[in-house]
């Protein structure tokens, strides 16, 4: 139920927007996003944009993994 999918905003009108999802145009609510703009990628959950995405490339996960491993080796655990 907590599934959310990336979608791109193609129209924005106040709290309402049209998002493009795999070629489908969906009317969504963007009131939970600060200053939504056409072209933004958002996480769409049950008709609401719940977050603006900063990037969707899975390769980023790998880069983050390397960084975290290095940081953990240097810093140790959480106090």
């Amino acid at each position: 139920m907590c599934l959310a999918v990336p979608a791109q905003l193609v129209e924005v009108d106040g709290d309402q927007a049209v998002a493009c999802l795999h070629g489908n145009r969906l009317s969504i609510n963007v009131s939970l996003i600060h200053e939504p703009r056409v072209g933004d990628w958002v996480l769409l959950h049950a008709g609401f944009a719940i977050q603006r995405l900063e990037g969707t490339d899975l390769e980023e996960t790998w880069a983050i993994l390397e960084d975290l491993a290095a940081a953990a080796a240097e810093e140790g655990g959480d106090p």
Partner: peptide
């Protein structure tokens, strides 16, 4: 890896969407 290191941590592998403080409007 963290279990092997013996020091528990909070880590975020999903920073594209997840911030430390969450969605303030939500």
């Amino acid at each position: 890896e963290l279990r092997l290191g013996g020091m528990p941590r909070l880590e975020n592998l999903y920073p594209q969407a997840v911030s430390p403080e969450g969605n303030p409007r939500a």
